[in-house]
Simulated assay, not measured.
Amino acid sequence: MVAVDLTVRVVLVDDDSLVRAGLRLILGGCPSLEIVGEASDGREALTLIEQTVPDVVLMNIRMPTMDGLAATRALHDRGDSARVIVLTTFDTDDMVLTALRYGASGFLLKDTPPADLVDAVRRVSKGEPILSPSVTAQLIATVSRVPDDRRKRAVDLLAGLTEREQEVAVAIGRGLTNAQIAADLYLSVPTVKTHTGSIFTKLGVSNRVQIARYVHDAELK
C-alpha cells in the first residue's frame, strides 16, 4: 500500500491582516495544507487552537492583548499537540530564545521564500524542528562572547559525542537541514537522523537551536 500524506491543518496568528493574507495565499495554494483558522492575538489564538486542533501554528511574536511568547508558553503548559513556528523579523533576539524555552518547534523570518515556508510547515508537522540558516547565524551572533564556564561546559558535553556526531552537530550549527547534512557528509538522511537523535540524548537538548549554541560556545567549526 502506498503511503499518502495527510493534510496538515494550520492556524495563522498575527495582528497584521496583510501578513495573514500573504500567508493564506502562500499556504492555501498547497493541496496538502489547510488553513483552519486565523487569530489576531495570542488570547484569541488559544481559544481557536482548542476548537480547531491544528497540527501547526504560525505565531507572530509582537501582538496586543497576549503576545506570541505568552501564547506559545500557554500552549506548552496545557499540553497542546500543535507545533509552533515562530515568525520573526529578528529584531528581538531575546524573545526568540525565550520562545525556544517555551517549546517552539521552529523559527523563520517573515521574508522566508514561499517554497521554504511550505516545506517548513510540512517538516514541523512531522516532528522535525526548523531553524532557517539566517536565523541561526543571527542567533549565534547574539551570544558571541562566551563566558569561560559556559565554554567549558559546551566543550565537555560535545567531547562525549563520537567524531561523526560532532561533524553532524557542527553542520546543525551551520543551519543545515538533514538532507544538506547527508549530502555534505556523504551519509543517508536516515543515518543523519539517527546521529541527530543520539546528539539530542547525549546533550540533553530538545531542538537544533540548542545544539547550535553548544557548537558555538565550544568554538567548533
Results as ranks from 00 to 15, higher is better:
4 V>L: 15
6 L>W: 10
9 R>C: 12
12 L>A: 10
13 V>E: 08
13 V>H: 07
13 V>P: 11
15 D>R: 01
21 A>Q: 05
23 L>V: 04
25 L>D: 03
27 L>W: 01
32 S>Q: 12
34 E>C: 09
34 E>Q: 13
34 E>M: 10
36 V>L: 01
38 E>L: 08
39 A>E: 03
40 S>G: 12
40 S>F: 08
41 D>A: 07
42 G>W: 01
42 G>F: 06
43 R>G: 02
47 T>V: 15
49 I>C: 06
49 I>P: 01
53 V>E: 14
54 P>V: 07
55 D>Y: 03
55 D>N: 07
56 V>W: 05
57 V>G: 08
58 L>W: 08
61 I>E: 00
61 I>A: 01
62 R>G: 01
63 M>D: 07
65 T>G: 05
67 D>N: 14
68 G>Y: 04
69 L>K: 00
71 A>S: 10
72 T>C: 07
77 D>Y: 11
79 G>L: 09
84 V>S: 10
88 T>V: 02
89 T>M: 13
90 F>V: 07
91 D>H: 13
93 D>K: 10
97 L>F: 08
97 L>N: 00
97 L>G: 03
99 A>L: 00
100 L>N: 02
104 A>D: 00
106 G>P: 00
110 K>C: 04
118 V>H: 02
120 A>H: 03
125 S>K: 04
126 K>Q: 14
128 E>Y: 14
129 P>D: 14
136 T>C: 15
141 A>P: 10
154 A>I: 05
156 D>P: 11
163 E>N: 02
168 V>F: 10
169 A>Q: 05
173 G>W: 00
176 L>G: 09
181 I>S: 13
183 A>R: 12
186 Y>I: 09
189 V>N: 05
191 T>A: 14
194 T>A: 14
198 S>M: 05
215 V>R: 05
216 H>F: 03
217 D>L: 01
219 E>T: 09
